[in-house]
Design a protein around this nucleic acid. Structure first.
Length: 142
RNA sequence: GCAGUCGUCCGGCUUGUCGCUGGCCUGUUCCGCACCUCUGGCGGGGAACGGGCGAGAGGAAAGUCCGGGCAACACAGGACAUCCCGCUUCCUAACGGGAAGAAGGUCGUGAGACUUAGUCAGUGUAGAAGAAAACAACCGCCCCAGCCCUUCCCCUUAGGAUGGAUCGGGGUAAGGGUGAGAAGGUGAGGCAAGAGCUCACCAGGCGCACGGUGACGUGCGUGCUGUACACUCCGGGAGUUGAAAGUUCGCGUAAACCGGCGUUAUCAGGGCUGUCCGUCCGAGCCGGAGGGUAGAACGAUGUGAUACGCGUGGCAACACGGGUCGUGAAGCGGAUGGUGACAUCCGUUCUGGAUAAAUGACAGGCACUCCUUACGCUUUGUCUUGGGAGUACAGAACCCGGCUUACAGGACGGCUGCAGUC
RNA sequence: UGGGCUAUGGUGUAAUGGUAACACUGCAGAUUCUGGUCCUGCCUUUCCUGGUUCGAGUCCGGGUAGCCCAA
């Protein structure tokens, strides 16, 4: 089911949109770690293939990692600045996600939320390094 | 040339690699359906993963300050309340918007900028200061009468004259240190003392005539005249909510439990905001505790770019309108009303736009602005080459018209001031 | 995104358009042998900026910051 590692695409299905999953992630049972200016909150979910997924299993395979990116209005007042940071983070994840995908086994997937902590902008090269560090650690601990 | 002012417009371009959103075309695999037929063929549909093509933020997308479209509130209406607007004319679907204009004030040498307002009929209020905030009273001034005193006339009394004190009656919008404001201001006459009481000039109001569509202006007449605010009055206008509106599909408890009101009625409750009336709906409604769901679609985004000349507006930059040719591209095209969002109808077709929220990330080049130790010179420059730094304000969330606020840099035209040359 | 509200000493709150008030805290002084209590005094550009007004914390524009509500 996992796609080839060489793909750098980032589809809608890889984004975390389900309200239930988001509430479960922040409600409890999560682990977190931070590499300033980032903080990652993540959780492993067992795939419920057995019961209700069976009739439509062929329709929508769930990717092994789903990601949420959050930049609070408290850190950047203007929408332009928030969009800038989100785009940087999205690119950082997109180009480095294979580091995590290689570590995920069959039958479960990982839900991650990246939360921005700083009040200032960073260079993209710095963010790429931090993202790589976080993804490797998540791969070890999930 | 420098500085300024008003108006209008623009607000980066490009290459490479990797991506995002949705559209069209297409390939592979899988799914289920219909038909012909029977290990298959074929048609349209769905899902996953690919390929190709072209598209994808603003002048303010922002603030949410006005106005409109759109949607819901079953549906007529009336009275009162409440709220908004307020120089004139025009533009406009509408507006607290715009254009032109009139009167006053402030700032600027100037071009210009900013700003004010219906009423003057009525009612109320005006801290502190001040005699008093317009009713009156007080100090002061003046007149009249009484009584007392002084001096003079007189032989004396009485009486008369002059001056003073006091009490009583009256006249006093001049004067009384204040104050934003003191009976419109200044001057003269007049008076017992004073006063638009009278006169001249000035400011304003009212009436008439003339000019102007009008705000107003000019002339004549008229003694009509304190300031500010609120209420009142006059004219015009406003139903409320706000796309998380609303419509549809799906999932799920539950025709469950407790309390109150009501059940064909002078009737609980509800309905276009507040109150009242009227009218309509009406068999359920309100509260409590506990529980279920919290997904999807529609609403919702299409109406071209460029070039050319034409018309209208403008001094112009430019804007708007409909038209034509060529090129690229192709789902919209036409009619009526509207600037437009939109509404109605016809034909043809299914269309760009997300929803934890796309329109990008990284690297290079160009352009522009600023800085500069360096380089070059028939030219010594606001020059050339090189190096460095910077490139604003800011991101659609139903749509449209305005306003306000933010903004690196640039373009065009009108006008003003200063300096210089002829 | 769409609605709505607030801003006053360090903190919590008052204030008809007319001298910005009260309580607590802090600091200084006085009292005491010393400390506390008590007493006296001090600490404010009423968020910023224009306007209306003789006069604005209050009324009216425009900004800034913070908060609340609506699946």
């Amino acid at each position: 089911m996992p796609k080839p590692v060489s793909s750098y695409s980032f589809h809608k299905s890889e984004r975390l949109c389900s309200k239930k999953l988001i509430e479960a992630l922040f409600g409890g049972g999560h682990k977190s770690m931070s590499a300033y200016p980032l903080r990652a909150v993540f959780m492993t979910v067992e795939d419920a293939v057995g019961e209700d997924e069976a009739p439509v299993a062929s329709a929508a395979p769930v990717p092994s990692v789903q990601v949420l990116i959050s930049v609070s209005k408290r850190h950047f007042k203007h929408a332009v600045d928030r969009n800038r940071v989100k785009r940087q983070l999205r690119e950082a994840y997109r180009l480095n996600k294979h580091l995590l995908l290689d570590k995920i086994g069959e039958g479960s997937h990982v839900v991650v939320a990246f939360i921005w902590l700083s009040d200032e902008h960073f260079k993209s090269s710095v963010l790429h390094a931090k993202m790589r560090k976080l993804l490797l650690r998540i791969g070890e601990e999930h």
